[in-house]
Amino acid sequence: MAQEVRGVIAPGKGERVRIETVTVPDPGPGEAVVRVQACGVCHTDLHYRQGGIGEDFPYLLGHEAAGLVEEVGEGVTDVAPGDFVILNWRAVCGRCRACRRGRPWYCFDTHNARQKMTTAGGTVLTPALGIGAFAEKTLVAAGQCTKVDPSVPPSVAGLLGCGVMAGIGAAVNTGAVGRGDSVAVIGCGGVGNAAVAGARLAGAARIIAVDLDDRKLATASALGATHTVNSRSQDPVEAIRELTGGHGADVVIEAVGRPETYRQAFYARDLAGTVVLVGVPTPEMQLEIPLLDVFGRGGALKSSWYGDCLPSRDFPMLVDLHLQGRLDLGAFVSETIALDEIEDAFTRMQAGDVLRSVVVM
């Protein structure tokens, strides 16, 4: 029968979040109920609260999560009750034209649970990124559950469900960073610093971290940046060029999502270099770059969806790297908090005081 749990709701645009009773239905065909053990506070959740993503309020926030499968519906075979899983927001269909071409990370028909969670009063909730994990339990499509080694702490495992995967994937998958490459990362929040870690894993020889905040740059250095640039005091394009022999970086990853920082990334890359946009812009933003410059510089301008990851492939691999001591996921966790502290965590995130707050149930 349906269960009632506590969850964090964004009731309307710009309104403070609040804890309400959430009704979680029994899983139907192809669905699973997951008991959430930990969930990161991601900037995307703040975008939802502010109305920057959609207007389907009220939202059940939270998506960067790990937990235990509690129940599964008819036809589910890939996971079972008791499995420790990381939740993902791009459950691939296996049938669309991208999947049939062997590129499931581009799946054009990703899906979520068909049933809806509601408030105790029956109001339908929109789960953030189809997950809604700022709750003690949540209902998802079974394909959104990726089974991983249960020895990894939930507080770090869940980060792979969004921010850390987006950043590492932007470097390794989308940017195809190779051994000996030079890489610049503009914006060193959770996603940008994950891109720094990904560039290090890929064997980049020079990793240049750019940000306005020396605290974030210090974290970038700990995660593998060989050089840092504070763009309050230095022109980042000139600094990146100077650090790369006057040429620009082979790969520049823009992890802010603003037109001005994208232009910096565009002009800070080498000829035939690659720009990867992984920062999320807001709907009103516009970009203007001379088309001749786009033509004359060659190379590639890419957007990175979820780090172009395939959860079934990438999540277990990154968990293994963490357990081997080769990827310090714990470095991304600034603090652990309770479910009723999320509004304050948003404030600290906006102030740049934390890399990631993680709700531990």
Rank of each mutant, 00 (worst) to 15 (best):
S231P: 04
G224N: 13
L329G: 12
M285T: 03
C96Q: 10
N112V: 12
G67Q: 09
I253Q: 07
T226K: 07
E64A: 01
V196E: 10
V36H: 03
V358Q: 10
F266H: 13
E136S: 00
D353A: 15
P58F: 12
I289M: 10
K216G: 01
A194I: 08
R95K: 14
G73R: 01
V172L: 13
H322I: 02
H247E: 14
V360F: 02
G12L: 02
D45A: 06
R101V: 02
V17H: 06
I9K: 11
V124G: 02
A10S: 15
L223V: 13
T282Y: 05
S233E: 15
D26R: 13
I19R: 04
A135F: 01
L125H: 10
V210E: 08
A98H: 11
S312T: 09
Q264H: 13
R97P: 02
L243Y: 09
D56H: 15
D181M: 13
I337D: 09
L301D: 05
F315W: 09
C145I: 09
A32M: 03
T244N: 08
R114F: 03
M165C: 03
A239P: 02
L61G: 02
V34R: 02
G62T: 04
L301I: 12
A133F: 00
R18S: 13
F134W: 14
R356D: 12
L160K: 09
V76Y: 05
H47Q: 12
T261Q: 10
T244M: 08
S182N: 11
C93F: 00
A222N: 00
D344K: 14
V276K: 11
R100K: 14
I208L: 10
V76D: 06
